[in-house]
């Protein structure tokens, strides 16, 4: 039996029972509220909320990175302060750990929902078209899934590189500033980061708009247009801001 048949039959039966149970004249159709937690829209809402966490985080992260333009001392102090924030209420680095937990949880939620929706979409069209054109879809919107996978791969690389120090293409100095600049002086590391920022920009370009739409904040044409603009601005600001540092290193503006 196809899933839709299954759905229909159980649904019809449910309704009929509730209709007849209460007597002959019963034509009220109050089937009771159905669970909505596993629906596509619930999954989308999960993606929207976790996406919002990421947007907030990358905005702060990008802001922090720009300290690189103020030199080694400023940057290293900033990195140090991050770990001291809210101490002594929290232990040294405590806030970062809280952030990491929130981020990992968001990542798990975001990715799990994305893969679930991806699977549903694939199942929703098992027989593909011989010819199919995209009429209006932007490149950004069409590359959300593979772009997301690419970003996931980048995040792993990024953590191995700058958090766990597992990969050390530019040497392994103590100073975060020197580590950063040293890495970007290796051309292919800078290229990886720049490409990742392009992917991030595209992901945010559609993702931020999509988040506002999924949260239902775009329910008139004016807000709908504004949301598209918000997506574009966030994408340029975040991806552009991040890209400034490797570009600055490559151009010799930021040096050791």
């Amino acid at each position: 039996m196809r899933p839709s048949e299954l759905g229909h039959r159980s649904f019809a039966r449910h309704q009929a029972v509730s209709g007849w149970r209460y007597g002959v004249l019963v034509t009220t159709t109050a089937p009771g509220r159905r669970s909505g937690q596993a629906t596509t829209i619930a999954l989308k809402l999960l993606m929207a909320v976790t996406g919002l966490v990421f947007v907030g985080y990358v905005l702060l992260h990008m802001y922090g990175n720009l300290w690189a333009f103020s030199g080694q001392q400023a940057f290293d102090e900033y990195a140090h302060h991050l770990r001291e924030l809210l101490t002594p209420m929290l232990p040294y680095g405590g806030l970062l750990w809280i952030l990491r937990v929130v981020l990992v949880a968001s990542l798990v939620g975001h990715a799990a929902a994305a893969f679930a929706l991806w699977a549903r979409a694939a199942k929703a069209r098992e027989q593909r078209y011989a010819v199919k054109k995209a009429v209006t879809a932007t490149l950004a919107s069409r590359t959300m899934r593979w772009g997301g996978v690419a970003l996931l791969a980048f995040v792993i690389f990024h953590i191995l590189h700058l958090t766990t120090h597992t990969i050390n293409p530019g040497g392994d100095p103590e100073s975060p500033y020197l580590r950063l600049v040293g890495s970007f002086q290796v051309w292919w590391v800078a290229v990886i980061y720049l490409l990742a920022m392009l992917a991030l920009g595209m992901h945010i370009r559609h993702g931020a708009f999509s988040m506002l739409q999924t949260l239902g904040l775009t329910d008139n044409r004016r807000r709908y247009r504004i949301s598209h603009a918000v997506g574009l601005v966030l994408a340029i600001v975040i991806a552009g801001g991040f890209a400034l540092v490797p570009l600055g290193v490559l151009l010799g503006i930021v040096t050791t």
């Binding site: 839709s4 759905g7 596993a38 596509t40 209006t136 879809a137 919107s141 069409r142 559609h206 999509s210």
Partner: peptide, 29 residues
Amino acid sequence: RYTRVLNMVHQHDLEGFGGCTNIGECTAV
């Protein structure tokens, strides 16, 4: 209003339709 949306979305998924990714191809056609 709110029971309607829950029940209709539920049925939408049961019928095997996928989720929206806000791409806009639908409106375009």
